[in-house]
Amino acid sequence: MYKNKTITILSHLLVWLTLVCLPYLLSYGQEQEFNRVIAHFWIPLVFSAIIFYTNYFVLVDRFLFPKKMVYFIVINTIMIVFFLFLKEYIEDNYIQNIAKKRIENTNRVQPPFKMAIYIQVLSYLAPLFFSIALKSTKRWIKTEAERKEAINFKLKSEIEHLRYQLQPHFFFNSLNNIYALVDISPDQAKKSIHSLSKLMRYMLYETNEESISLSKEIDFMKKYIDLMKLRVSDKTKVNYHFPSEETGVKIAPLLFISLIENAFKHGVSASKSGTIEINMTCNNKKVMFVIENENFPKKIDDKSGSGIGIPNIEKRLELLYPNKNSFKTAVTNNRFVAELEIETN
């Protein structure tokens, strides 16, 4: 912030220094009459600077932006008229050469008085309009920055909400599965609780960042799949394939877990055989995740979960990877297929 302020001050000084030297720059090698430069250039330049900074620091913020146009116009009109008369007064009383030439030239053809006044008024309106334009641009940039900051804050809040929404949903489904093991296999239930504690530790402490390495997410998914396999019968086969080598890819955490949950929730039957196929590939920073399972209808009295899995994924993809994702679901030959592709670069 201090650096930006210094650059702004130096920029203003450079502009005004250039304007002060402009008569000599435009007439390089020619003799300039000093009094004429003072009367016709430097004095109006000082008045222009006063008009510019008065508007820039005071009038635009106090009257123009609050839409007090009458006050703004009246004050600037008074300033411009005052400077017009003040310039004439200074020339007539303090710059003798200009006054003498004006008397000598009274009998010569002179530009119309109205035209001279018109030109001088325009010369004072220029810094006025420039101050308005500069201040308006600065205000727009600030407003735009605040708008983007508000949007980013809103997006982060929504993403956090979705992530915290997913955690209890995941925890509830996992506990529901472990509950089913308590009477059937107490030892497996104990093992499942221990595995769940590791998974919850990952969700609480490892997923606070916007993105994590894909390898960590894969390790989490493998542990979750192994946990879920404890409660399914031999009639359900679970096959999965993930990239075995480090890909160097970073991805938003917990994007795929809901799809795996849904596969174990809707693709498992106690009386019918079925297969869950989970495959992930990673090529050129693109992650492709495909999961297939039998489409067994959910029982009416099954109250597990809350149906937030798929909507949660869709909303997070919309926020995290706009125009960089492809998510499709379909039922083919009584098998549910979900395909999710993400561009991570």
Rank of each mutant, 00 (worst) to 15 (best):
I141F: 14
N35W: 08
Q96H: 12
G274H: 01
I159N: 00
S174C: 10
F82I: 14
K154W: 11
Y28P: 10
E158P: 01
I51W: 03
F41K: 01
L340Y: 00
R201N: 15
S233Y: 06
F129H: 01
M203S: 11
L230S: 05
C282E: 11
L64I: 01
L25D: 02
M203H: 03
K156N: 12
A189Y: 08
A252N: 03
K5Q: 10
N312I: 06
N176T: 14
I151A: 08
F57P: 07
I80S: 00
N105Q: 07
I132A: 06
S271R: 13
N55T: 07
I51Y: 02
K285C: 07
I98Q: 04
F296D: 02
P127V: 09
I251F: 01
N93D: 01
M221Y: 06
I151Y: 12
T275D: 12
I103A: 14
M69T: 12
G267E: 06
N55G: 05
Y24R: 13
W140C: 11
P66S: 02
M203Q: 10
T332G: 02
L86W: 03
Q120M: 14
S136L: 14
Q96A: 14
E144S: 15
H40G: 13
I98D: 02
S244V: 12
S306F: 08
A116Q: 14
A145Q: 15
I151K: 10
N284E: 15
L134W: 04
N173G: 06
H266V: 05
I184R: 15
M1T: 10
M228V: 00
P243A: 10
E318A: 03
D234L: 08
T137A: 15
K223E: 15
E146D: 09
M1H: 06
F327H: 01
S258H: 04
T6F: 14
P311M: 10
F52V: 09
Q110L: 13
D187N: 12
L134I: 13
V337W: 04
L122E: 11
T106K: 14
L155E: 09
L45A: 07
M69D: 05
S197H: 09
F242L: 13
K87N: 08
I212R: 07
E314I: 05
R316L: 06
W140H: 12
K216E: 15
E144H: 12
W42E: 11
F289S: 03
R62F: 05
F172G: 06
I151N: 07
G267T: 09
L162M: 04
V74R: 06
M280S: 02
I51M: 09
R139T: 15
N283V: 13
H169R: 10
E91P: 00
A99F: 09
L254Y: 00
G248R: 13
K148Y: 13
Y89R: 04
F52A: 05
N345D: 15
G274Y: 01
Q32E: 13
T137N: 14
M280D: 02
K272G: 02
Q167E: 13
T137I: 15
I193D: 05
I51Q: 02
V238Y: 01
F113G: 03
